[in-house]
Simulated assay, not measured.
Amino acid sequence: MASIFTKIINREIPGYIVAEDERYIAIHDISPLVMGHVLVIPKQESDYIFDLENDALAGLTLFAKKVAIAVKKAIPCKRVGVAVIGLEVPHVHIHLVPMNSMGDINFTKPKLSPSKEELAEVTEKIKAAL
């Protein structure tokens, strides 16, 4: 069964796409820890990041770096935190989280519930910074 990310990649459901190439996609999380929280995803489905072939893992990391630089330009923050958890969706993804404090990347805190308009606005800011 296709993951929710594959459904976004295939345009079966909408997503707030920040960046995309032939192998990877970055989307704004719809339940972010902070605004600007982006998920970087390989288009090839794999459940566990270390099951990726070396070239796919390296490419994912380099794609995430490009997106993280844009997030930092678009969202006022001290740095962009990186996390790979991989339990909530069985499809590899890297979390990029704008941080001003350690608490900004605490996955146990309540998630935000931004409006579609807020998500679209932040997505466009990040896209413009690419």
Rank of each mutant, 00 (worst) to 15 (best):
M1L: 10
A2K: 14
A2R: 09
S3L: 07
F5I: 09
I8V: 11
I9Y: 05
I9C: 03
R11S: 15
R11W: 03
R11F: 08
R11A: 15
I17F: 08
V18W: 01
V18M: 06
E20M: 04
D21M: 06
D21L: 08
Y24Q: 04
I30L: 10
V34A: 03
V34M: 02
H37K: 08
V38R: 01
V38I: 09
V38F: 00
L39Y: 08
P42I: 05
K43D: 03
Q44G: 07
E45Y: 08
S46C: 14
S46D: 05
D47N: 14
D47V: 13
F50E: 13
N54Y: 12
D55A: 11
L57K: 12
A58H: 11
G59H: 08
L60D: 08
F63I: 10
A64Y: 06
A64M: 02
K66A: 10
V67F: 04
V67P: 03
A68R: 04
A68L: 04
I69A: 14
I69M: 15
A74D: 04
I75P: 01
I75C: 01
P76W: 04
C77S: 15
V80Y: 00
G81V: 03
V82M: 14
E88K: 10
E88R: 10
E88S: 15
V89Q: 07
V89L: 01
P90M: 08
V92L: 03
M99I: 05
M99K: 14
N100A: 07
N100W: 01
S101M: 06
S101Q: 13
M102S: 12
D104Y: 05
I105C: 13
N106M: 09
N106F: 08
F107V: 11
F107E: 10
T108W: 06
P110N: 11
K111I: 04
K111T: 07
S113C: 10
S115F: 10
K116P: 01
L119I: 07
V122D: 02
V122T: 14
K125T: 02
K125Y: 03
K125M: 11
A128Q: 12
A129Q: 05
A129V: 04
